[in-house]
Design a protein around this nucleic acid. Structure first.
Lengths: 240, 240
DNA sequence: CGACGGCTTGAGAGACCTCAATGTAGGTGG
DNA sequence: CCACCTACATTGAGGTCTCTCAAGCCGTCG
């Protein structure tokens, strides 16, 4: 079964995500849309950033999926975090920053240079919040890997993706594109693809999760979240 | 065996760490030392920050050890990261930030409110670098938990601690205070304390690592690092 | 001295991995 | 249009790593 290319290209998904993080000005929106329009196409498996390399600009995923990864000397691979449309990578807050992990496109993707935040207070706040979310997702990943069983890891990750993609407006009726291979998900969850496959069979049999043809359907996301003990990530008390 | 209190109290270790991250002005140093002097004593197990709570100030560990932790509904505990002297916690870059995990003192400790970075360019850079390191350590933790065996996790963590404490000036002759119980280390490594204990016995037998009475000795840190495939974390290409 | 927290060890069970083979869908070239 | 190839998904059998439960030990402190 080959994964289909995303059936609907979602223009400005990245802009939408950032504009939901902080109240952006019209100028910000224009800058983001211009950046998206000037984006670059990259094909699956291409490396967008190499560990240890000097970082010069913040970039954002416009469409498609990517991941930050680290590969051990003997070839074991760990996906540190997934990058979805609207996510930023190549943080450069310090001077002369070095990438602390590689970034790889997992699907064909579109990547743009994020407009600099120096000009706009509101855009800077959106970036800051985006970074805060990224940190929170790293911590969630640690808890998954450290203290959850394979089954729990899978469900927790799927719920996180649901939550993140909803913010970006890429979820309809608890259903979203999941254009990843089982091997990729396994590398994110610290499992082998064989074991992941078996656990997926179990979960599928249970009826709450359906994953076929690159689309994921969560039957009862709230119930699942309750069982899995997952609460949505929140990084600010501000409402807007 | 009870852990001894650190045999040498190391004044200004936190200041030393930050001043090694960026070239600080005399004013910065004074502000940091003043903050350290005004610090608060907290006892082991006390909670310094609660998950979901609104964060109002950045704090720094002056002496002792703490950890960011998350506890699952059924009591499983995962230590997300260890906080050592000179480490900051309670990040507040966004407006009205919420703590995304709890912070707990692992030993009796001294904690200070970090001087605000708004006044000083150089101090802000030190904080930024400190945050960059914190991020890098989170990623290292993910790789440990996701793709390393118990033995590898242990050695990798010990090497990381060695590396971090050296920056703070708390290592002498590849030997440093490690005032943690095996249960705490197990919770950091996603293991049970029973299994950690067994692996420690093996590693100890191998002769490269000695851990007794709250002190850790690494016999051949470079050789260990080579075997374990660990390279020091670097977050900037800048030299100073 | 007894109680307590932490360390150590044993025996057995369970989760997850490895190796290996098979299945299946799409893509490509003849 | 078929044969073949590739990438991914699936399944089986057996092994290993790590966990659980449980008991004993050791040093410290009251």
């Amino acid at each position: 079964m080959t994964r289909a290319e995303p059936s609907r290209f979602s223009p400005y998904a990245a802009t939408r995500r950032l504009s939901r993080l902080a109240p952006l000005t019209d100028g910000d929106i224009r800058a983001l849309q211009a950046a998206e329009a000037a984006a670059r196409y990259v094909s699956a498996r291409s490396e967008l950033l190499h560990e240890g390399q000097e970082v010069t600009e913040v970039r954002m995923i416009v469409s498609g999926w990517a991941a930050t990864v680290r590969i051990l000397a003997d070839g074991r691979r760990q996906i540190i975090g997934l990058l979805l449309p609207g996510d930023l990578f190549g943080d450069c807050r310090q001077s002369r920053p070095l990438a602390n992990s590689s970034v790889v496109a997992l699907t064909n993707a579109v990547v743009a240079v994020a407009p600099p935040a120096t000009t706009s207070e509101s855009l800077a706040e959106a970036y800051t919040l985006s970074n805060a979310f990224a940190d929170a997702y790293l911590m969630a990943q640690i808890v998954r890997l450290g203290r959850m069983s394979a089954r729990e890891r899978i469900i927790d990750l799927l719920l996180e993706l649901h939550e993140r993609l909803r913010l970006t407006g890429l979820v309809t009726r608890d259903e979203f594109e999941l254009p990843l291979t089982q091997e990729i998900v396994a590398d994110a969850l610290g499992l082998t693809s064989v074991h992941l496959n078996r656990m997926l069979r179990d979960i599928r049999g249970h009826g709450d999760v359906e994953w076929r043809g690159g689309r994921l359907i969560l039957r009862q996301p709230e119930a699942l979240a309750l069982i899995a003990g997952r609460t949505p990530v929140q990084v600010t008390a501000r409402t807007f």
